[in-house]
Amino acid sequence: MTRIHDKFKELKERGKAALVTYITAGDPSLETTTKIVFELEQSGADIIELGVPFSDPMADGPTIQLSSERALKNGMTLRGVLDILRKIRKKSEIPVIIFGYYNPFFSYGLKKFAEDARDAGADGVLVVDLPPEEAEEFKIHTDKVGLDLVFLLAPTSTSERIRLVSERAKGFIYLVSVTGVTGERPAMDYSLEHIVREIKNHTRLPVGIGFGVSTQDQAQMIANFADAVIVGSALIRIIEKYGHKGKELFKEISGFINGLSQACYHDS
């Protein structure tokens, strides 16, 4: 069992949905990413998704596209992401999921990546463009080293696919909240609760909801029926705005994450 499993168990006892935060490694800089992770943890984030920037982020809206471009300009690579993770692990035991598009993993070598990621202290991997049908060649390696390969479900997923993904997933299931790319949205889809219930019919894994979550109200609503609230673009926008403004960045992150974290407690 990974730190992800333990974390969900611990939070359940405390009556809180997990707050999962996405950041792109290398944005605004290689050094700052590590500090941001520590700040996120202190402010109440429970799980970190460490994004591997990719040249062609097909499932991302403008905010994460630009973040990926900045990170790539800073020389970020998959190897570099693992270096950052090793630095994080010197000080923190927060669960970390490496999050990205398939080609950098494929290019690195799937077996080698699984082993190196485990050694660096990763707990899971989520590959946006790797549905279960194509995932076997990677999953044999992640399973072997005990990394959770997390899969996505979407509002468009049929019952058949909900069953398939539920059977193959590890760690938790990431339910995409909207039919669309990543990015903040004013309104959430209320049929999500129904999908979460259907997923739970097939698996005991926790279910997290992401894409478009940016406010405490949204977080609170999700925390009422899901096990994790996932925030990406809204956090990236803070990093975009305050990335080079020193301490202000950490103050802004702290305020934002604190609020969301509070909203993740049941009946808060």
Partner: peptide, 20 residues
């Protein structure tokens, strides 16, 4: 049947597109 030409091809897309 999964769209593979030898080791190539396939369907590497995010879940949202899989049903389509």
């Amino acid at each position: 049947e999964l769209g593979h030409f030898g080791v190539y091809g396939g369907r590497y897309v995010s879940e949202t597109l899989m049903p389509a």
